[in-house]
């Protein structure tokens, strides 16, 4: 299962890709201050553009049942030294998430079909960031839970919590 930024058709694997527009709890955090506010929302999926979130905010996000989104397209779109920096930041954030008990998911956040990647590639992405096999499986289960919650009819409440692993 994957989260993308466009409306996938059947040809592009609509069953596997979940558009951002269908997720009411997905948020892009432009900076650390924005991330701070978003981490208080219940069951929020926070995608920090700079991959910098304070430990205190991660703790709040964990309490609120939210998760951090790691995007493969952020890595693919960069080149050379800047790619190395963003991978390094992702590794540090993943380590902080593990320390604070915050959930995380891996997605491509592809803007078009050419940016989509297979499940094996996403798994390799998670492994390169330092996620263990158990964490990778948990992230996949969490993603499947998000997909199930997003397909349920909206009743004015936030999507149901996704309990994984622990």
């Amino acid at each position: 299962m994957d989260i993308v930024r466009f409306e996938p058709t059947g040809k592009e694997g609509a069953g596997r890709a979940l558009p951002v527009s269908s997720l009411s709890n997905f948020f892009d955090a432009a900076n650390a201050l924005a991330a701070k506010q978003l981490c208080r929302k219940k069951f929020a999926l926070v995608h920090p553009s700079g991959y910098e979130i304070d430990d205190g905010d991660l703790l709040e996000l964990a309490r609120a049942g939210g998760a951090v989104v790691f995007s493969l397209s952020d890595v693919v779109s960069e080149r050379g030294f800047r790619r190395a920096i963003i991978i390094s930041k992702m590794r540090l954030l993943l380590s902080a998430c593990r320390k604070r008990g915050t959930g995380f998911v891996f997605a491509t956040l592809a803007k078009d079909a050419s940016q989509m990647r297979s499940a094996r590639e996403l798994s390799a992405f998670a492994a390169v960031l330092g996620a263990t096999d158990v964490e990778r499986k948990d992230a996949e289960k969490r993603m499947a839970g998000i997909a199930t919650a997003s397909t349920k009819p909206k009743s004015g409440k936030p999507n149901s919590p996704v309990q994984v692993g622990k």
């Binding site: 297979s118 590639e121 390799a124 492994a127 390169v128």
Partner: peptide, 22 residues
């Protein structure tokens, strides 16, 4: 895993879209 991730990171070559799919 690193090799597969490296393959996934290829998106263009000399200005043309490219894909190296494992």
């Amino acid at each position: 895993d690193e090799a597969i991730f490296c393959m996934a990171c290829l998106s263009e070559w000399k200005g043309a879209p490219a894909r190296l799919e494992p």
